[in-house]
Nucleic acid binder design. Structure first.
Lengths: 246, 246
DNA sequence: CGCTCGCTTGATCTCCTTCAAGGACAGTGG
DNA sequence: CCACTGTCCTTGAAGGAGATCAAGCGAGCG
């Protein structure tokens, strides 16, 4: 069983060089493990968290609820990712972080991270970079929802989740877990559930992907990429099988 | 005449407490000043910059060009703001930074900033926070373009630019400079120029704002806020006249 | 003076929304 | 073991916000 600290250390290492000593220091961080039921928030609008979240299993999402009750999802978070690093230096949450399905998380206190930041410049750099990559992802979501027609947008989201899953070694034989409902996709893309449904069917009929009972199967990755015009550069991954395009 | 370093120091101070010594250290940074013609890029997709940009006058924008040649603007940058702090720890640009109108910028070398980061924890914290606030702004742009109908989205963008202008003391008597064309608004909001034009007219007719020859005049701030359902929290400003809502 | 750039207007089209309802499936309790 | 209920997926029909196409207009400028 890998520790929470080690999970974080590995994740950081996927964005750049992490010296052995720094890796060990991060891996040694103490954490509380918590199980979060499905559809439950871990952090809420207005909170002042004093710990950082690491996803251990399950799936999380970041979202806001608009004035008319409309939910906009800002991002999804796979196991091994650290969704709330920004709370280290932002005074309060302006959005919500919740579990999509039953999810196990690790909580590492800000204090411990601050010590790492002060004492380990290389680890600090990767922590910082991680928050910057998240910003780049948000910008890509902006582009997706502003410019792309539904079928491209949906394909693009599949591409992103697939590449990110691959980057944390959660893809096997072209299959990865993606336990969402169509409504989650709709709220991520700014579409209605009805239209998402129809778009999904159209995508299925291309033969590029299959998505059933929370499992995404990519049958034809080049075709999926082509449909979405997907360029993984914005994920700033050091190296993955799928992210070779530069 | 205020120096580039001092401009940056002041800007950082608008996001949190900056001790006198740290302020002085940032203010003392050496910078190159450059004049950029309108519609000219300072940083391009794929670049590896080794300096940070501070806007001194004019207006900048961050954008990408999609596969079909469609431009999506990710953000605008007013004088006193620092648009490219993320280049400190991101390996390469995945977007473009350009001047909208003739713009004067200051360039501070990464090396100098790295020294500040290493030696001045408080300044470092504010630099980091600045990048995190930018991420929060990107998320709000996502919400705006995904969920809001055109008239609300446009009003919301006006609200943001107005509050940000106010935060850097560029509002006088309800007027601030906003030297954009309707096409820029369109590309920021993911709309067509034609529809932006009609939406703009509708907004004008509410009497809340006026926007002519690059000048934004807010006649009725409460009304504008109401139209957009604008909540300035996401800007994480320490205090401004307009951002009092928490 | 002619030219370009930005703004404006009209007409038509289409992608997506809205509203409404039916169906598959799993979990629960009798 | 089977009705009961909730959740999620699916389908149909109609309506609307915004896109597209096309053209005219005004102002600054070489």
């Amino acid at each position: 069983m890998i520790s929470v600290g080690e999970t974080l250390a590995r994740h950081l290492a996927s964005f750049g060089e992490l010296p052995r000593a720094d890796f060990e220091a991060v891996a040694a961080l103490r954490a509380e493990v918590r199980d979060v039921p499905r559809q439950t928030d871990v952090l809420r609008n207005g909170d002042h968290p004093n710990h950082v979240v690491v996803v251990l299993s399950g799936l999380m999402h970041r979202y806001t609820i608009g004035p008319e009750g409309k939910r906009q999802i800002h991002s999804f978070y796979l196991p091994n990712e650290a969704p709330s690093l920004e709370t280290l230096y932002i005074d309060y949450m302006d959005n919500n972080l919740g579990a999509v399905v039953p999810t196990r998380i690790g909580l590492i206190s800000h204090d411990q991270i601050y010590r790492i930041i002060d004492e380990r410049p290389e680890a600090r750099k990767l922590l910082w970079r991680q928050t910057l990559v998240q910003a780049a992802v948000f910008r890509q979501w902006l582009v997706r929802n502003s410019n792309l027609p539904a079928h491209m947008a949906l394909a693009h989201l599949f591409c992103e989740m697939y590449v990110r899953a691959d980057a944390v070694d959660l893809v096997e034989n072209g299959v990865c877990s993606l336990p969402l409902t169509q409504e989650y996709f709709a709220d991520a893309l700014g579409l209605t559930a009805v239209h998402t449904n129809r778009t999904l069917q159209a995508l299925r009929e291309t033969g590029a992907i299959e998505w059933r009972s929370g499992q995404l199967t990519v049958h034809d990755w080049p075709k999926l990429r082509e449909i979405a015009r997907f360029d993984p550069n914005y994920l700033h991954l050091r190296s993955t099988r799928l992210a070779r395009s530069r």
